[in-house]
Computed example of a mutant assay.
Amino acid sequence: MSILWAIIAGLVIGLLAKLVVPGRQPIPLWLTVVLGVIGGMIGNFLASAFGVADTRGIDWIRHFFQIGAAAVLIGLVTPLWSRRKA
């Protein structure tokens, strides 16, 4: 069940990250989900490193780290994906 939640969270994080990154990102949905999952894991690590992983209520700072990490990944991967041979 945790794998399903990771995929759902990756989808949400990835889609929000695509909204943050300027311009068009012509990457497929499956790559958006993968980058969202990886961004979520990096964001959780950063939130733990800064001591803000568990706060009262909604962990907004952790979510900002997750979306930010996914946005960076999308920004790095999109040009590589666009240049690949079909």
Rank of each mutant, 00 (worst) to 15 (best):
M1D: 05
M1T: 05
M1A: 06
I3Y: 06
L4G: 15
L4D: 15
L4Q: 15
W5V: 13
W5Y: 12
A6P: 13
A6Q: 13
A6S: 11
I7H: 10
I7R: 10
I8F: 14
I8C: 14
I8D: 14
I8E: 14
I8V: 15
A9K: 06
L11D: 13
L11V: 13
L11Q: 12
L11T: 15
V12E: 11
V12D: 12
I13K: 07
I13L: 06
I13Q: 05
I13R: 06
G14H: 11
G14C: 09
G14W: 11
G14E: 09
G14V: 08
L15M: 04
L15T: 04
L15N: 02
L15F: 05
L16E: 07
L16N: 09
L16Y: 04
A17R: 01
A17F: 04
K18L: 11
V20M: 07
V20H: 01
V21D: 00
V21Q: 00
G23K: 08
G23T: 08
G23D: 09
Q25P: 01
P26H: 05
I27W: 03
P28R: 07
L29A: 10
L29F: 12
L29K: 09
L31H: 10
L31R: 11
V33M: 04
V33H: 02
V34R: 02
V34N: 02
L35F: 03
L35N: 02
L35P: 01
G36W: 03
G36A: 08
G39M: 03
M41C: 05
M41R: 08
M41G: 05
M41A: 06
G43I: 13
N44E: 09
N44F: 14
N44V: 08
F45C: 12
F45Y: 09
L46G: 04
L46K: 05
L46C: 03
L46Y: 02
A47Y: 07
S48E: 09
A49L: 12
A49C: 05
A49Q: 08
F50I: 08
G51C: 03
G51M: 06
V52G: 00
D54M: 15
D54A: 11
D54I: 15
G57C: 13
G57W: 15
D59W: 15
D59G: 12
D59F: 15
W60S: 05
I61S: 09
I61E: 13
R62D: 14
R62N: 15
R62F: 15
H63L: 14
H63R: 15
F64H: 13
F64M: 12
F64S: 12
F64Y: 14
F65H: 02
F65W: 02
Q66C: 10
Q66Y: 10
G68Q: 04
G68W: 06
A69R: 12
A70H: 04
A70R: 02
A71E: 06
A71S: 10
V72D: 03
V72G: 04
L73G: 04
I74A: 01
L76H: 01
L76N: 01
L76I: 03
T78L: 10
T78G: 02
T78W: 06
P79Q: 00
P79C: 01
P79F: 01
L80Y: 06
L80K: 05
W81L: 01
W81A: 04
S82W: 09
S82K: 13
S82M: 14
S82Y: 09
R83N: 08
R83E: 07
R83G: 10
R84K: 01
R84N: 00
K85E: 12
K85D: 10
A86I: 07
A86Q: 07
